[in-house]
Nucleic acid binder design. Structure first.
Lengths: 338, 338
DNA sequence: AACAGAACTGGAACCGGTTCCATCCACGTT
DNA sequence: AACGTGGATGGAACCGGTTCCAGTTCTGTT
């Protein structure tokens, strides 16, 4: 049986309070006493119980992260940023992974998830009003990362602006026939980033005064294969686009594959722009929109700690900017005039 | 202030034991009493404290995972397998990420890491005898994933066999001049998989009766850029290799880049084989060694649960096989005879 | 010498659950 | 009517820390 604080107290001939003080480096312990206690701890191979400590303190020294599809590069990157921030503070991180719509729906209802952490970060999951109510009810500081709700602090990325940026980049290159490939809008997980990128795409087209072409928009489940198929559909159109904006790099890969399958050269015959700037994008020389994944994770963690510390910042809805990373898959169309 | 079990007991006019029985679905509660307790819980918005439960039960219902460089695809894949297994059992997962050699060294010493979980899975980190002693001393069931030590249960992957397999594949294609690019052997994290793959490479060459060419082995820190440089060195040799075996797909990407930079066609001028079969390998048509990342994670979790349940399996040192995935980057050399 | 105040210490009470023992009650037997 | 049995229940003790109050000892003043 493991030694407890009382065993140590008895062995050292002191009270439990004193042992606790030694454990917590309280200055109100005389040097001889401290040494006696430390010796007793060593002799008994005493290891304090984190669980008992948590109960007594009422704090778990742990933060939770809820993430869907934990393997997607965008989520891994964000989580990595959170982790970096956490290890600096010595907090533990408990990871909840959501892989099915059922898990998503059950997720916020599960109290013990929230009650076993001091704070929570929710990545990407769409949050409805009802969800926000439940979350606030748990009374656990929670920040949304890459998601948004008026009642909850959030670190979001300017998806609409990014969609606009990507489209404007293609327009600036001289493209007039620009297609969009993205996730379906009715994601059971409530992801809306693809939808917002689409919105930016539409805005840019409208500002440029281009007419609306429904055929140039293809939506499907997230993934390379689906995007591949959607791109093939676009390329088989009577009047195919000269450029495709994919709502994620993963989907852009599918587009590149489709172009390859159709023997189209990129960027000569088809320009492609992705979104995310995942690690492999640089290798593939993929023009894309860089979003600060690591940094957004860090900022989410920082914001959460500010909330935990009791002095929350003025602004709790942060929108991070994105930028175009010009690489080799986007160029002026061959038929461009001037 | 949140309601406690005693508040509920008072409100329902029962004893705390009865409330606890209701919480735990004990059959020894009469229906009317149960309803009264449930009503009181609802009225008080009672939420049981997981922390108190843990202290009383002496179990945390949590397992820990220590992983280095959490963003590397091989580790993410394994972690994902673990997660899948855990969500099925309702255990929580706390994630410890190791990014510096200092963290690695401090890692096993930190009791509270171990004392706050029921079981631990350690990914990839090399475990010395001294480490194993410390780990066993914590008395927390621990399984090594993609690592090995005689005193600890492990799920390992047959790296030596994989290295042999990769090399034999190149030999079978007719290659005689086969180079190796891998991680430095003195990894501060104790990674040894690259080293074992190298061992397999050497074994295969020896079995085939090829002479040992030190110049064909290049080691460096893990990563695409370094591998790129090492590959350039190889290609600049007086008598360059016709095939390169990279100890990981990430490094294989660097090799492909180098080949591209040297205007060498793959596989016509240079064959490349990687290792891991990360997601992007298929996209790049990279011939590689498939190792079951997801499944290895699942098996590690399964093994850990068997240990936790008290009836450990006979064999606690499991070695998973790997296989060649033939794709487009490995082909017979142009100068091959027959 | 008297005393205030600071430094140090012991230990009861508390955090919020679980568990186990003693008790009570209803019911069926003989 | 006496008694055995088992389901239902209350509550003290426990898990292993922290905290706070009260008490003791040690200093430094006047």
């Amino acid at each position: 049986m493991a030694a407890t604080i009382r065993d140590v107290a008895k062995a050292a001939g002191v009270g439990v309070g004193t042992v606790s003080r030694v454990l917590n480096n309280s200055p109100f312990v005389s040097q001889p006493t401290r040494e006696r206690v430390l010796a007793a701890m060593a002799a008994l191979d005493y290891q304090p119980s984190p669980t008992a400590r948590r109960l007594a303190l009422g704090r778990t020294h742990t933060i939770g992260v809820i993430t869907p599809f934990f393997t997607r590069p965008a989520f891994v990157g964000r989580l990595n940023g959170i982790l970096a921030e956490l290890t600096a503070t010595n907090y533990d991180l408990v990871l909840f992974s959501i892989n099915t719509p059922e898990q998503r729906d059950a997720c916020f209802q599960n109290v013990s998830k929230f009650k076993s952490v001091d704070g929570m970060i929710i990545i990407a999951l769409g949050v409805q009003d009802a969800d926000a109510t439940v979350i606030k009810h748990w009374n656990v500081p929670t920040v949304l990362l890459d998601s948004h709700h008026p009642d909850l602090p959030s670190i979001a990325i300017d998806d609409t602006g990014g969609g606009r940026l990507a489209t404007e980049h293609l327009i600036a290159l001289g493209h007039r026939k620009i297609a969009f490939i993205g996730d379906t809008f009715d994601s059971p997980f409530g992801f809306i980033s693809s939808q917002r990128r689409y919105l930016g795409y539409r805005q840019a087209l409208e500002t440029a005064g281009f007419r609306y072409r429904p055929a140039y928009q293809r939506l499907g489940d997230h993934g390379r294969y689906v995007a591949h198929q959607l791109a093939l559909e676009l390329l088989e159109l009577h009047d195919p686009p000269t450029a495709i904006f994919a709502a994620s790099d993963t989907q852009a890969l599918g587009v590149l594959e489709a172009a390859h399958a159709r023997r189209l050269r990129v960027p000569e015959d088809l320009s492609v722009i992705g979104y995310d700037d995942i690690e492999i994008a640089e290798y593939l020389d993929l023009t894309t929109i860089h979003q600060p994944m690591y940094s957004s994770g860090q900022q989410a963690a920082t914001l959460l700690f500010e909330l935990l510390s009791g002095n929350p910042p003025e602004e709790t809805h942060i929108l991070l900017p994105v930028e175009v990373v010009q690489r080799g898959t986007a160029a002026p169309p061959r038929t461009a005039h001037g």
